[in-house]
């Protein structure tokens, strides 16, 4: 089996930046990824990526992808990594296409995904009224009643988008108060077509072919909300399950030092999948470059 210098898992800002550095260092490497852009592709307006006063998520991803492909880089797109482990002196990477790859180093840049509710009805009605992307699917609920599950910034952001589209919005928050930034919270609290349910937990999602209601336990009482759309905005979880034997923190983020090294020599990690403080596109990109430069140094020493 061929042994690469480096395998990069993921092609969000961290993975793509790592790939640019790897190409420029003339490393023999491979990028394996389910999608291009990661969470950035889902982002609406971006106003804090240096050099762009304003850019949308898809536009920035397009620039990232162009940059990555401007080198002769091998990208296995649409291929999910199911296992990464150190075996002897090499790192073994297995994918859902049944392929196995070997490398001297790996950079895990697999990012985060939406957390699911884990209630009855969620699996059945996913994309049949349940959405994890208000920016994408919100406009489909023009004039309808919807529920947003969550109480943090992403839930508030979804709410502010939906109050302009939907007829009525329920905010179902399991904490005693809404969290997030006060400017957004105030706008939500002042909106005329929003009802905020604090101390409320979703018990089940109901429907026929599509969602038509949710069952909520609100301050000890059962309530059924007639809604056609359910937007789940209860945070993100790291895509780190497939990496064997690396140390993770309580939230499942891969622990790294300030050289992007994990506890396993040769396995590096970068971006939102790690415990790096602050999750930002520009930070993920910077971390990707750091991880690649460190991997390059590791190769020179081993």
């Amino acid at each position: 089996m061929k042994i690469y210098d480096l395998i990069i898992v993921g092609a969000g800002p961290a993975g793509i930046t790592a790939s640019v550095y790897a190409a420029r260092k003339k490393m023999d490497f491979l990028v394996i990824t389910g999608d291009i852009g990661g969470q950035t592709a889902w982002s609406g307006d971006i106003e804090n990526y240096t050099g762009y006063q304003f850019v949308t998520g898809p536009e920035l991803v397009r620039k990232f992808e162009e940059h990555m492909r401007s080198y002769d880089t091998s990208v296995r797109e649409g291929e999910g990594v199911i296992a990464v482990e150190k075996s002897g002196e090499f790192i073994l990477v297995e994918t859902n296409k049944g392929a196995q790859y070997q490398a001297k180093t790996a950079i895990i840049a697999s990012g985060k995904r939406s957390r699911e509710l884990g209630v009855p009805g969620e699996k059945e009605y996913k994309n049949k009224g349940i959405s994890y992307c208000a920016t994408c699917d919100g406009p489909l609920f023009n004039g309808k009643a919807v529920a947003i599950i969550g109480g943090g910034n992403s839930a508030l952001d979804a709410c502010l988008q939906l109050i302009r589209i939907a007829k009525y919005v329920y905010m179902v928050n399991n904490l005693p108060k809404l969290g997030g930034d006060s400017i957004m919270r105030q706008k939500v609290e002042e909106a005329k077509n929003v009802e905020i349910l604090n101390n409320a937990k979703v018990a089940a999602i109901l429907g026929d072919k599509m969602v038509n209601a949710i069952q909520v336990n609100h301050e000890g009482k059962e309530r059924t909300l007639q809604v056609e759309g359910v937007f789940v905005e209860i945070g993100l979880i790291p895509n780190s399950d497939f990496v064997k034997d690396v140390e993770k923190n309580a939230s499942g983020e891969i622990k790294i030092n300030n050289h992007n090294e994990t506890n396993i020599p040769g396995i590096f990690a970068a971006g939102d999948v790690t415990d790096v403080p602050e999750k930002q596109i520009i930070i993920a990109a910077g971390e990707g470059s750091k991880a690649c430069l460190r991997a390059f140094r590791y190769l020179a020493q081993h």
């Binding site: 592709a41 889902w42 982002s43 609406g44 949308t56 998520g57 898809p58 991803v61 992307c133 920016t135 994408c136 699917d137 919100g138 406009p139 489909l140 988008q161």
Partner: peptide
């Protein structure tokens, strides 16, 4: 929809 990144 105009706002959906994957549509773009």
């Amino acid at each position: 929809t105009p706002t959906c990144p994957w549509c773009v």
